[in-house]
C-alpha cells in the first residue's frame, strides 16, 4: 500500500464527510433550535437531486441545476414547515417521528408519480469532468476536489451566518431559550420557517452535488439520512461545529475502514475470508465509533444538553 493510495483515500473520506456535513448541518439546526426530529430530511436531499436533474436536462446547464436544487428544496422545506411541521413543535418526539415518516412516504410516492420509477440522468459538468494530477502524483477527479472546496465554502458561510449576523444571534438565542426570544419580540414563526428552509436548501444542495456522481432515484435520501443522524449524535445534537467534526469523522472512518480493515485482516487470515470479514466489520465501523464517542461523552463531542 503506497502513500499515494493512502492520501487519495484520505481525500475520498474528506469529500464524503464534507457532503455529509451539508445534510447534518440542517438536521442539527432543526433539532437544536426547534427540538424537532425530521426524518423527512432525506426526502429534501432527493428533491434537490431531482430538481437539479430536471433543470439540467431542460437547460443543459449544471449551474442552473444547482440553483433549481437550492430553490426547489428550500421551497419544499418551507412548504412542509408551514403545512405540517408547524403543528408538531409542541408534540412529543414519537408524534414527530410518525408525521415526518409519513412525509417520507408521501415524497417518495409523489416523486415516483411525477418522474416514474427509472433513475434520472444527471452528469458532472464538462468543465469539471475527468481527473487532475495533484502534487505528489495523485490522480484525483476534479469534480470531487470541487465538492470538497464547495462544501468547505458552505461551512465557512454557515459559521459566519451563525456567529456574525443578526439572524445568527436569533438562531443561537432560539437554541437556548425559545420563550425568551419570543418575549423579546422576535417573530419566532418566521425564524422557524427560515431555519427549516435553510436546512432543506443545504440538503437539496448536497443531493444535487452528489447526484451528479451517483444515481438520482427515489429513495436515495434514506441511506444518507441514517449517516446524518449518526453524525449529529457523534458531534452533539444542535451544534454546527459538532456536525462538521462528526461528518468528517464519519466520512473518514467509513472510507478508510472499508479500505484498510480488509488489508489488516489479510495479515492473519486467508485473503477471501479477510475480504469478507473486513467488509462486514467496516460497515459497522461508524456505529462502533458512535458507541465509543457516546461512552466517552454521552452528549456527543460538542453537545451541550443531554
Amino acid at each position: 500500500m503506497t502513500t499515494t493510495l493512502i492520501l487519495e483515500q484520505f481525500l475520498n473520506g474528506l469529500q464524503s464527510g464534507i457532503m455529509l456535513f451539508l445534510m447534518a448541518a440542517g438536521l442539527t439546526l432543526i433539532f437544536g433550535v426547534m427540538g424537532l426530529i425530521n426524518l423527512a430530511h432525506g426526502s429534501l436531499y432527493m428533491v434537490g437531486a431531482f430538481c437539479a436533474a430536471t433543470a439540467a436536462a431542460a437547460t443543459g446547464s449544471f449551474a442552473l441545476g444547482l440553483v433549481a436544487a437550492l430553490a426547489g428544496a428550500a421551497a419544499a422545506g418551507a412548504l412542509i414547515e408551514l403545512v405540517v411541521i408547524r403543528r408538531l413543535y409542541d408534540r412529543d418526539h414519537l408524534d414527530q417521528v410518525l408525521a415526518t415518516f409519513a412525509l417520507i412516504l408521501i415524497f417518495s410516492e409523489g416523486t415516483r408519480w411525477v418522474f416514474g420509477s427509472f433513475p434520472l440522468y444527471l452528469d458532472v459538468p464538462e468543465a469539471l469532468s475527468g481527473p487532475v494530477t495533484l502534487p505528489g502524483g495523485i490522480q484525483y477527479p476534479l469534480y470531487r476536489l470541487t465538492l470538497i472546496l464547495a462544501g468547505l465554502a458552505v461551512a465557512v458561510g454557515l459559521f459566519w451566518l451563525i456567529a456574525r449576523t443578526r439572524i445568527g444571534v436569533q438562531i443561537r438565542a432560539g437554541e437556548n431559550d425559545r420563550e425568551m426570544i419570543a418575549a423579546l419580540g422576535v417573530d419566532i414563526d418566521r425564524l422557524y420557517t427560515f431555519i427549516f428552509a435553510l436546512g432543506a436548501a443545504l440538503a437539496g444542495l448536497a443531493g444535487a452535488l452528489v447526484g451528479a456522481i451517483q444515481s438520482v432515484q427515489v429513495g436515495m435520501g434514506e441511506p444518507v439520512l441514517i449517516l446524518a443522524f449518526v453524525t449529529i449524535v457523534i458531534g452533539g445534537i444542535g451544534s454546527i461545529k459538532g456536525a462538521l467534526v462528526g461528518a468528517l469523522l464519519v466520512g473518514l472512518t467509513d472510507t478508510l475502514g472499508s479500505v484498510f480493515l480488509p488489508e489488516l485482516f489479510k495479515l492473519f487470515m486467508a485473503p477471501a475470508a479477510a475480504t469478507q470479514t473486513g467488509a462486514s466489520l467496516s460497515s459497522m465501523a461508524i456505529y462502533i465509533l458512535m458507541a465509543v464517542v457516546l461512552i466517552w461523552r454521552p452528549t456527543g463531542l460538542f453537545g451541550a444538553r443531554a
Partner: peptide
C-alpha cells in the same frame, strides 16, 4: 484484487482508488 462493498453503497471512490493502485 477482490473487494466486497456494502450493499446499497453509493460512493465507490475508495474502491476505484484501489483498482488504480
Amino acid at each position: 484484487g477482490e473487494v466486497y462493498t456494502k450493499l446499497g453503497q453509493t460512493d465507490y471512490a475508495a474502491e476505484i482508488a484501489q483498482i488504480r493502485a
